[in-house]
């Protein structure tokens, strides 16, 4: 437990979709046993970053080391071995629509373990209880609300007790009560099970509340990083605007576009 090297170490990360640069030299360290939040405006590439860490996209340059192994260089077999120790909560939940809630949570257990049915049942019920949906185990995903689907997906993601949990926008679509429970749950999972947690979010208050460390991303770069306390006292105008949610300032709200007034006056080309 004295291992001080970061669990995830990203260096010089460059990545783009078809010519559009998303990351332009990003360095990030995720410390073991800590909750690290990655925040930034919508469309900066937070989801993309998680996909890169999970090995679903390949960087154009740079390294992504998890526990010493460089993810983009791993063979498919090694990558799959690594993924068994990672849990990822997708922004949409991404439940398997032909299986009910119970079977969705049981899915990783059935695929990767030889546990007897009784133990699978108990494990699934424990995970579902943790997200407050034990009573919904017979429902099909189509009968769940968006927030409920995300909680089921969370139960599924932690089914194998991963060492690294990644959450993509865990708080959006949750009512205040389930939000509170969820915030506590993420913290507890991290501390009690000795996990390492990455949260990607733009919900400033909730995220800053549970994170040990924050990274702020914008326009392909890390703008600032530090403990929540340090960032709140930051002198940077950008950081203050983002954390306080002010409409005017250096953080752009718009997707890059030509001047609006000019575009309105332009004649449509035939």
């Amino acid at each position: 437990m004295l291992d001080e090297t970061p669990l995830v170490e990203i260096r010089g990360l460059r990545f783009g979709y078809a010519g559009r640069t998303i990351f332009d030299g990003v360095d990030i360290d995720i410390q073991r046993g800590k909750v690290t939040a990655i925040m930034g405006p919508s469309g900066t590439g937070k989801t993309t970053l998680l996909r890169l860490i999970g090995g679903q996209e390949r960087p154009d340059a740079g390294t992504i080391r998890i526990d010493g192994a460089n993810v983009p260089a791993l063979s498919r077999r090694k990558l799959f071995e690594l993924r068994k120790r990672m849990g990822m909560l997708f922004q949409s939940g991404a439940l398997l629509t032909d299986l009910n809630v119970f079977e969705n949570v049981a899915f990783p257990l059935r695929e990767h373990t030889e546990l007897p049915e009784i133990m699978i049942r108990d494990l699934v019920l424990i995970k579902l209880e943790a997200v407050g949906l034990r009573g919904a185990r017979e429902l099909m995903p189509s009968a769940l609300s968006g927030g409920m689907a995300r909680r089921v997906a969370l139960a599924r993601a932690i089914a194998l007790d991963p060492m690294l949990m990644m959450y993509d926008e865990p708080f959006s679509g949750q009512d205040p009560i389930s939000m509170g429970v969820l915030v506590k749950l993420i913290r507890e999972l991290n501390d009690a099970l000795g996990m390492t947690t990455i949260i990607v979010s733009h919900d400033v208050n909730e995220t800053a509340g549970i994170a040990d460390y924050l990274y702020l991303l914008s326009e392909g770069r890390v703008v600032e990083h530090g403990t929540p306390k340090r960032l709140q006292e930051s002198g940077s105008e950008w950081t203050r605007q983002f954390l306080e949610g002010l409409p005017d300032g250096p953080v752009p709200f718009h997707y890059p576009a030509p001047d609006f007034a000019r575009e309105l006056l332009e004649l449509p080309s035939p």
């Binding site: 999970g54 679903q56 799959f80 071995e81 993924r83 068994k84 990672m86 990822m88 997708f90 949409s92 991404a94 439940l95 398997l96 629509t97 899915f107 990783p108 695929e111 990767h112 997906a153 599924r156």
Partner: peptide, 14 residues
């Protein structure tokens, strides 16, 4: 389209 295949990959299931 609903990321079910992606999520399966992330669960180390091909």
């Amino acid at each position: 389209a609903t990321e079910q295949l992606s999520s399966m990959e992330m669960m180390a299931v091909d």
